Amino acid sequence: MRPSLVRSVRPRRQVRNTAPLLPPLQLYRAILRAHASKLPTELRPLGDQYVKAEFKAHQKIDNPLHIVGFLTQWQDYLREIDGGTWLDGKMKQQDLEKMSPEQIGQLYELMQETKKIGISQDEESL
Rank of each mutant, 00 (worst) to 15 (best):
S4T: 13
R7F: 05
R7A: 09
V9W: 14
P11N: 09
R12F: 08
R16P: 12
A19M: 12
L21E: 08
P23G: 08
Q26N: 10
Q26P: 08
R29T: 12
I31F: 02
I31E: 09
I31T: 06
R33Q: 15
H35R: 01
H35L: 05
A36Q: 15
S37C: 10
K38F: 05
T41F: 15
Q49N: 13
V51L: 03
V51T: 15
K52N: 09
F55K: 00
F55T: 02
I61P: 09
D62F: 04
G69F: 01
F70K: 02
L71P: 12
T72L: 03
W74Q: 03
W74N: 06
D76P: 04
R79P: 07
R79M: 08
G83D: 06
G83M: 01
G83W: 01
W86I: 03
M91A: 11
K92Y: 13
Q93E: 13
D95G: 05
E97N: 10
S100K: 08
S100M: 03
S100E: 11
S100W: 01
P101I: 00
P101V: 00
P101M: 00
E102C: 07
I104A: 06
L107M: 07
L107N: 07
Y108W: 07
L110R: 04
Q112D: 10
T114F: 06
T114W: 04
Q121D: 12
D122L: 13
D122Y: 12
E123K: 07
